[in-house]
């Protein structure tokens, strides 16, 4: 279980004469249960990606705590095998000198479990690719394929949670749908949970159990997806109305 309590984050902005503190997140608190898919929805600049970085432990909050099964997420040992990530920019997410095989092995090597005979074939088939991709380099892959490799890499270490930060936003419409289906299927197969950060409300509604709407660094509303039609705050209502379906 991932527990976020009273998290604040701010960055120092240095000006010519004075330094100002730019507050990005204010009093964020929520819990993520194992196996759950939680959507984090917001406009650009709402602080959702900053929150994602904090959840991954690659950045530390100025105040508050983030724990995974009671242990601080900032500790590398806590994160290992617990949480992995897929980012928006698939072109820069894979080392360009690595083949697909090396890219997928990278997280396993860090865990020193690369000696286990690893079944690449079934993993790649699980994400809709096959063994023929193993010796290809990132530039030989299309956007959808590269993102699938990133997902395969995230799945390879069998984490409890995968954080997807705008992972489908830069893909074409039809490919987006394929990746969403893939994520649904993977969840059934491996029983993992997701934290799905996006501005695409329809995609989030398709995949998630709960949705957290975030605005200006604060949680505006947290609802179960079935209850989405009954959001209370005026901002959430407006956000949901402005969906081009």
């Amino acid at each position: 279980m991932l527990k976020v309590e009273g998290v604040y984050q701010s960055y120092r902005r240095s000006g010519l004469l004075r330094r100002t503190n730019h507050e990005v997140l204010r009093n964020i608190g929520f819990e993520w249960e194992k196996g759950e898919c939680l959507g984090i929805i917001g406009e650009s600049g709402s602080g959702k990606s900053t929150l994602g970085r904090l959840l991954l432990g690659i950045d530390k909050p100025v105040r508050g705590s983030i724990t995974f099964d009671g242990k601080p997420i900032a500790d590398r040992k806590t994160r290992r095998g617990a949480i992995s990530a897929v980012f928006q920019d698939y072109t820069s997410s894979i080392n360009p000198f690595y083949t697909v095989r090396q890219a997928i092995l990278e997280p396993l090597r860090l865990r020193k479990s690369e000696n286990e005979s690893f079944d690449f074939g079934s993993l790649l088939r699980e994400v809709g690719l096959d063994e023929s991709y193993l010796d290809r380099y990132p530039h030989e892959l299309s956007g959808g394929e590269a993102q699938r490799v990133c997902i395969a890499r995230a799945v390879a270490s069998k984490p409890a949670c995968i954080l997807l930060d705008e992972a489908i936003s830069s893909l074409d419409g039809s490919v987006q749908m394929q990746v969403l289906e893939l994520l649904r299927n993977l969840r059934e197969t491996f029983g993992m949970g997701y934290i799905f950060i996006t501005h695409d409300i329809q995609a989030a509604a398709y995949l998630c159990d709960r949705m957290m709407i975030i605005r200006g660094g604060e949680i505006e509303e947290l609802v179960r997806t079935e209850e989405l039609a009954n959001v209370q705050s005026p901002y959430a209502k407006e956000l949901l109305r402005k969906v081009i379906s």
Partner: peptide
């Protein structure tokens, strides 16, 4: 048909969730 149907799946699910309330339509 493939392009249209993949879009339709998402928007149909969304409309169903929103209980057919008035969302931006074209």
């Amino acid at each position: 048909r493939y392009l249209v149907s993949s879009k339709e799946t998402l928007s149909r699910h969304y409309k169903w969730l929103m209980g057919g309330v008035d969302v931006a339509q074209g």
